[in-house]
């Protein structure tokens, strides 16, 4: 990682709220988000389905207004200073479209003509490995190729800040790696990247900082290591009878025929468990032990076992008639 933390924030958000609809049917999707994206960093915004990630991004992109709160993008207001902000940012939406009748080169030429100072079309074709497909119509492209054209548009204005909403969803593993490399190169070239993703491995290996959203709030922030810090390690095995009650662990629970132990000190807990098993002659089938990982933190948040996530959900349940968001997490197990 070549990330050098900077005092400046490329994005600074305070108390952001976003409500859809009015009156009794109103739904508050973003419920007081504070977010700082350090200049020159790759920051990943993670969250369960409906956590409010895209709703937050839309405000940063200037596509929607905040119901309340303050948003500064590159020190400017994305709505009031629209022209200045747009010239310095590149946006990739979760889903977007192109005219199927235009070729790849025509699509990029069309986009290029809308920018104040675009990079040359041929350079973008080369950079996104699209040169060989330049004269193919958009409707004949694969999903991965269309995504690369989309990325070419995002980067054509040479943006200082790049906002990518799930850039690798639906891509094959090789294309995903290509996007990762591109994102790293952007950061190494001095740009700031704010990215949302379904893939925890992607966030873990790519991002300098993580912001985990749940139920419209940011419940965890920091580097991947900082986020896992203070979170318990996990030991699990096929359930056996007679487990002692005095193991040095935080919690023992049963899940789908397995015993799951959460421990602050993995080595101590594991030693105690194995000593007991040896003395009893008990066999711990399918034994698994691992330190706290981003995935385990994420799962705890999604299941609201994490205190911050549970607090966020509980306050929402009180504020809204809607049940709090307990939807399935997006591909965390992938």
């Amino acid at each position: 990682m070549t990330f050098h933390p900077s005092d400046e924030s490329a994005v600074r958000v305070r108390g952001l709220r976003r409500t859809y609809g009015h009156g009794p049917t109103a739904y508050e999707a973003v419920r007081g988000v504070d977010l700082d994206v350090p200049a020159g960093s790759i920051t990943a915004l993670l969250g369960t389905n409906g956590a409010g990630k895209t709703s937050t991004l839309e405000v940063l992109e200037g596509l929607a207004r905040a119901t309340a709160g303050e948003v500064r993008v590159l020190g400017l207001d994305p709505v009031a200073d629209r022209d200045a902000v747009r010239q310095r940012t590149g946006v990739l939406l979760q889903r977007s479209g192109f005219s199927g009748d235009l070729t790849v080169r025509e699509t990029l030429r069309q986009w290029s003509g809308t920018l104040v100072s675009p990079r040359p079309v041929d350079e973008m074709l080369e950079r996104l490995s699209l040169t060989g497909r330049a004269d193919v119509r958009m409707l004949a492209l694969s999903g991965g190729e269309t995504r690369r054209v989309d990325l070419a548009c995002t980067l054509m204005g040479n943006p200082e800040l790049v906002i990518l909403d799930e850039p690798t969803t639906g891509l094959d593993p090789e294309s995903r790696r290509d996007v990762w490399r591109l994102v790293s190169d952007l950061r190494d070239g001095g740009a700031t990247v704010l990215i949302t993703t379904h893939y925890l491995d992607e966030a873990e290996s790519l991002a300098d900082r993580l912001e985990i959203m749940h139920a419209g709030r940011i419940v965890r922030s920091g580097t991947p290591t900082e986020i896992a810090l203070g979170h318990p390690s996990t030991i699990s095995f096929a359930t056996v009878d007679g487990l002692p009650r005095d193991l040095p662990v935080r919690q023992i629970r049963q899940e789908h025929g397995r015993t799951v132990i959460e421990a602050d000190d993995l080595q101590r807990a594991l030693s105690a468990l194995l000593s007991w098993a040896d003395a009893q002659g008990a066999r711990l089938d399918d034994l698994n032990a691992h330190s706290a990982s981003l995935e385990s933190v994420f799962l705890a948040i999604a299941d609201e076992r994490d205190p911050a996530a549970a607090a966020a959900a509980a306050s929402n349940a009180a504020a809204n008639a809607d049940p709090s968001d307990t939807s399935l997490l997006e591909g965390a197990a992938r």
């Binding site: 747009r86 939406l93 192109f98």
Partner: peptide, 17 residues
Amino acid sequence: GRRDELVLKRMRTGQTK
């Protein structure tokens, strides 16, 4: 047609007003 294909949505993220 362009709204359905998300072409307009894409254009609105850029510098075009």
